[in-house]
Nucleic acid binder design. Structure first.
Length: 332
DNA sequence: TTGTGTTTTATTGCCTCC
DNA sequence: GGAGGCAATAAAACACAA
């Protein structure tokens, strides 16, 4: 490890300047290598009032450490970390095994893990005193306790990220459903507009016809006041810039507003201009001209006297659109 | 039994804090 | 500058299907 971290010293263990994991394991399992303070630490472990009873591994002598009583009931792989030679029948074999394969890892016993888990639930950070105490109680090196907590925190973080991801995913699903509902609503409102527009065009034609027949009564030239009124009406209804702002998104279901599925402007209730932004129109100039001149002739708008302007419209059926800075509202 | 994927234990290097 | 945390990673242990 290139001398970066010296295991043991600060953690209560002692590895006499040898810092590889290999050496740590030698110390753990072969107590004869342990320095005096480390031996004292582990041999005093059974005095802890909070720990389950910790056993000295008889038959191993100074090399043996302690373990939970019930850990010993497990299979070979569940032997106590510090008491790997508790099977008297093959003790020598194990001993031999350890000194020839000192790098072998041993998993913590189920009870040790339970104990650590409980401790982790209480507090997922480990103060030095607590670390030493836990190590004492479990018959582990403080360093091992620290590593366990570190790995446990990493696992916890991963799980937390998974939870957060699921929450975000479900939130996204809800937003998407809302968005799709809004799109449907928008489509139906557009259809409604088309129907009403047709009706108005029809009505206007009828009215024109009646005007023409009235004209017939007075000769070929219409009276000047009617010409003026028609001209005024035309200006009111078809100011080109007003019309483009009205038409662009009404007739544009593929507006760039919606290119990414969830558009911030759409979702932002503070952005009242999102529906009628003229810059967002993707119609050609010809189409726009047609919309301005033909599709929405001046007469599709009700005459001023036919509309109640006392309250701003809340329904799209009014033909006056509930938008801020709408030129239609600046007529009066 | 063996191959393979997953979990657990441990190391390394970098970073921050005191 | 040392201690400790974290991310990335290695490697042993384990689980399990074929």
């Amino acid at each position: 490890m290139a001398g970066r971290r010296v295991y043991g010293g600060g953690d209560g263990g002692s590895i006499s300047g040898v810092s590889s994991n290999h050496s740590v394991l030698l110390h753990n399992r072969g107590g004869s290598f342990a320095s005096e303070p480390l031996s004292a630490l582990f041999l005093s472990g059974s005095s802890s009032s909070t720990s389950p009873s910790l056993l000295d591994c008889s038959g191993i002598g100074s090399r043996s450490m302690m373990s939970f009583e019930d850990i010993r009931g497990g299979n070979g792989s569940n032997r106590s970390f510090f008491c790997p030679f508790d099977n008297e029948d093959n003790g020598d074999e194990d001993l031999d095994d350890y000194f020839h394969h000192p790098e072998k890892k041993r998993r913590l016993s189920a009870d040790q893990v339970r104990f650590l888990e409980k401790s982790f639930e209480t507090e997922n950070k480990l103060e030095p005193e607590r670390k030493v105490q836990l190590a004492k109680d479990l018959g582990l090196q403080p360093r091992q306790v620290a590593i366990w907590f570190q790995n446990r925190r990493a696992r916890w973080k991963t799980k937390q990220l998974e939870k957060d991801y699921e929450a975000l995913q479900s939130s996204y699903g809800n937003l998407k459903a809302d968005y799709e509902n809004l799109l449907k609503e928008k489509d139906s409102l557009k259809a409604e507009i088309v129907v009403l527009t047709d009706k108005l065009i029809l009505k206007d034609k009828e009215r024109s016809n009646s005007v023409v027949s009235e004209d017939d009564k007075f000769g070929e030239e219409p009276p000047q006041n009617l010409v003026d009124e028609a001209s005024k009406s035309s200006k009111l209804g078809c100011k080109q810039e007003d019309m483009s702002s009205v038409k662009s998104d009404i007739f544009d279901s593929d507006s760039p507003h919606y290119t990414d599925g969830v558009h911030s402007s759409l979702l932002d209730p503070g952005d009242s201009s999102y529906i009628f932004d003229p810059d967002q129109s993707d119609l050609s100039q010809d189409e726009e001209d047609n919309l301005g001149k033909n599709l929405l002739p001046p007469c599709i708008f009700p005459k001023l006297e036919d509309v109640d302007y006392s309250d701003p419209p809340t329904s799209s059926c009014n033909f006056v659109f509930p938008i801020e800075d709408n030129a239609l509202w600046s007529w009066s």
